[in-house]
């Protein structure tokens, strides 16, 4: 199905930017200002750029992005909570010519799905994971996630996260970078235009690493949740920059030599 958008450029103008073809022309269910929309768009642009739309299979998670398969103009399926890497492993092993992408939130990947993601990375499965880290459980109403920052108030930590009770937040990129099977593990943020552009480049590299069979690739994206954080969308992006980036430093945690030379 091709995109149905057909906006005619005004006289003397050329098209600079339009909706990527890998996104279905429907309105998403995400809250206003939620960066899931940005992450979806970046993945769609990367798929378009590499020309792999017909070969891509997206594995949607449980969480706010549970309907992700309905928004991408690719093949897709829905995994049980946290099990997207296991399902992606099966798909990739049956048909290695496919580009298999899992799209997971922090409640999905860093809590119930920790075993799946760690072993997928340890086995060096040639899949790509987009890890959306917004430090909270979004869909269920804003409970504390493993990635919730110390002192952060959520529905289940109304006095702020206390290290004595809940421990310290997990830095998943650092954890996965220690595993021998991972090829490309980076953390980017979606809090401003510059960082969004950097995130897009990282997603393209991650998909290329998979296409070249180099191993497990993951891009962690620091995201906002204006609704459950209880602040406006622009303030939420500032909150990401001021509070999340210091605890979750942006950067490349593992880039094997073969990926560098791509």
């Amino acid at each position: 199905m091709e995109s149905t958008t057909s906006i005619i450029p005004p006289e003397g103008m050329q098209l600079v930017y339009e909706r990527p073809k890998a996104l279905v022309d429907v309105h998403t269910h995400y809250c206003p200002g939620c960066t899931h929309g940005v992450a979806h768009r970046l993945l769609a642009e990367a798929i378009d750029e590499l020309g792999v739309r017909e070969k891509t299979i997206l594995v949607a998670p449980v969480g706010c992005s549970v309907f992700a398969y309905a928004y991408f103009n690719t093949d897709g399926c829905e995994a049980a909570h946290g099990r997207a890497p296991a399902m992606a492993t099966g798909i990739k092993r049956i048909d290695p010519s496919r580009v298999v992408v899992t799209y997971q939130g922090d409640g999905d990947l860093a809590a119930i799905g920790t075993a799946e993601i760690i072993h997928a990375a340890a086995r060096g499965e040639c899949i790509t994971t987009l890890f959306i880290n917004n430090a909270i459980y979004g869909m269920t109403g804003g409970q504390m996630a493993p990635t919730t920052l110390l002192g952060q108030k959520t529905k289940s930590s109304p006095m702020g996260r206390d290290a004595k009770i809940a421990g310290l937040p997990i830095r998943m990129s650092e954890v996965l970078a220690t595993l021998p099977g991972s090829a490309y593990i980076v953390r980017r943020s979606l809090h401003d235009v510059n960082n969004i552009r950097k995130a897009k480049k990282a997603i393209v590299t991650a998909l290329k690493a998979q296409i070249n069979g180099l191993g497990f690739s993951m891009v962690e994206l620091l995201s906002s949740c204006p609704t459950n954080w209880g602040i406006p969308a622009d303030k939420a992006l500032e909150w990401v920059e001021e509070n999340m980036v210091p605890y979750y430093p942006l950067g490349d945690y593992k880039v094997i030599e073969a990926v560098k030379s791509l």
Binding site: P9, Y17, H27, G37, H40
Partner: peptide
């Protein structure tokens, strides 16, 4: 100026950008 910065930040992909040839 058709810099497309708005389209980059837009979470709902509502913005189409044109620039003068």
């Amino acid at each position: 100026t058709g810099c497309a910065v708005c389209a980059v930040i837009c979470p709902d992909v509502c913005i189409t950008v044109f620039r003068e040839v």
